[in-house]
C-alpha cells in the first residue's frame, strides 16, 4: 500500500478538524473493510487517514425519541446481536445477519456502510424501508438527512467535504407494522445479493394497508425506493393481483448492471419476484401481529 499519515483522534471535534485540514487528501476510516480494498487496489490513495475508531460513544445503540439511534461505529455484528434491535426491529437484525461473513460483520460499521454507498450492500435496503434518517456531523454542526435523500450515485452520498456520518436513526415500528427482508443469493451464501428487497407494511385492524415502503438493493446506482409500488399497495388488501401490480411497478424503477451475479434483465425479473415475496412476507407478519 502507499504511504500515508495516520491519526486516531479521540474526539469528534478533532476528527472533524483534521478532516477539514486534510481536505481532498484526507479520508476517514472506521472498520476499513471497503476502503482497505480500494487502497490496496491503488484506486484510492489518501495521504491522510483519519481513524474514527477511538471516538467515544459513537458505537452506542440506544433508544432516542421513540426510536433507536445506532452510532456510526456500531459494527454490523453489534447491530445484529443487539437485544434492543432484535426485540424491537427484528428485520434489521435479520438483514445484518445476512451481510457477507462474520469476519466482515465484526469489523464493518454501519456508518461506513452508509458512507461507502455501495448499491449492492444490504443494510441500506432495509434502512430505506424503515425510513431511517442519517445524522451527519461537520464543523458547522450536525444535520439530519432522510436516507432516501442520502444516496446520490454509485458510491456517492449527500455528505459534503469534511462531514462524517455519526449515526442512523430508526423509528420503532407502529402497531400493525411488520417488515421482511429478502436477499437473493443464487451462488454462495457469502455473496453480494443478486437482488435484495426489504418491505415494510402497516395494516389497519381490518387488514388494509395503511403504509408501505419498499427498499431495493443491487438494482440501480443507489439503493432505491419503489415508490410507485408502495402507492399501489396503500389502501389495499393483499391479493395476488395487487402483488403483481406492485412488482411490475417496482421493475419500472430499477436500472441494474450486469455482473457475475446476473444479467441486467435477470435482475429486473428477480426484482419483481422478490418485491412480491418481501411484500407478502411483511404482510403476513403484520396480519399475525394484528391478530
Amino acid at each position: 500500500m502507499h504511504a500515508f499519515d495516520y491519526t486516531a483522534p479521540e474526539s469528534l471535534a478533532s476528527a472533524l478538524a483534521e478532516l477539514e485540514e486534510a481536505g481532498d487528501e484526507g479520508k476517514v476510516i472506521a472498520g476499513g473493510t471497503a476502503l482497505m480494498i480500494l487502497m490496496m487496489q491503488r484506486l484510492v490513495r489518501p495521504t491522510r487517514l483519519i481513524s474514527l475508531r477511538r471516538l467515544p460513544g459513537l458505537g452506542r445503540i440506544e433508544v432516542v425519541d421513540g426510536g433507536v439511534r445506532i452510532g456510526a461505529l456500531a459494527t454490523h455484528r453489534d447491530v445484529e446481536t443487539s437485544p434492543l434491535i432484535r426485540s424491537r426491529i427484528p428485520v434489521l437484525a435479520e438483514t445484518l445477519s445476512r451481510v457477507a461473513t462474520l469476519r466482515i460483520r465484526n469489523v464493518a460499521t454501519i456508518g461506513g456502510c452508509l458512507a461507502h454507498a455501495d448499491p449492492n450492500q444490504d443494510p441500506p435496503v432495509t434502512l430505506l424501508a424503515l425510513d431511517a434518517r442519517v445524522r451527519i456531523a461537520g464543523r458547522q454542526g450536525e444535520r439530519q438527512v432522510a436516507l432516501d435523500e442520502f444516496f446520490v450515485d454509485y458510491y456517492q452520498t449527500a455528505l459534503r467535504p469534511g462531514e462524517v456520518v455519526v449515526a442512523v436513526d430508526v423509528a420503532f415500528p407502529a402497531p400493525g407494522n411488520a417488515s421482511a427482508f429478502h436477499k437473493f443469493l443464487p451462488r454462495t451464501a457469502d455473496d453480494y445479493a443478486t437482488v435484495a428487497v426489504a418491505a415494510t407494511v402497516t395494516l389497519t385492524p381490518e387488514g388494509v394497508c395503511r403504509e408501505a415502503r419498499i427498499g431495493l438493493g443491487a438494482l440501480g446506482p443507489t439503493p432505491l425506493r419503489a415508490r410507485d409500488a408502495e402507492a399501489i399497495v396503500i389502501g389495499e388488501r393483499l391479493s395476488d393481483r395487487l402483488l403483481a401490480a406492485a412488482s411490475e411497478a417496482a421493475i419500472r424503477v430499477v436500472d441494474p448492471i450486469a455482473d457475475p451475479r446476473g444479467s441486467a434483465e435477470y435482475k429486473r425479473q428477480m426484482a419483481g419476484v422478490f418485491v412480491r415475496r418481501a411484500l407478502r412476507g411483511a404482510w403476513d407478519r403484520a396480519s399475525r401481529e394484528a391478530a
Binding site: Y6, A8, G32, M36, R53, I104, N106, V107
Partner: peptide, 13 residues
C-alpha cells in the same frame, strides 16, 4: 476475541 480478516486491517487498528 473477535475474528477478523487481518488482510483488511491496518496494524494500527
Amino acid at each position: 476475541g473477535r475474528m477478523i480478516s487481518s488482510c483488511l486491517a491496518l496494524a494500527a487498528f
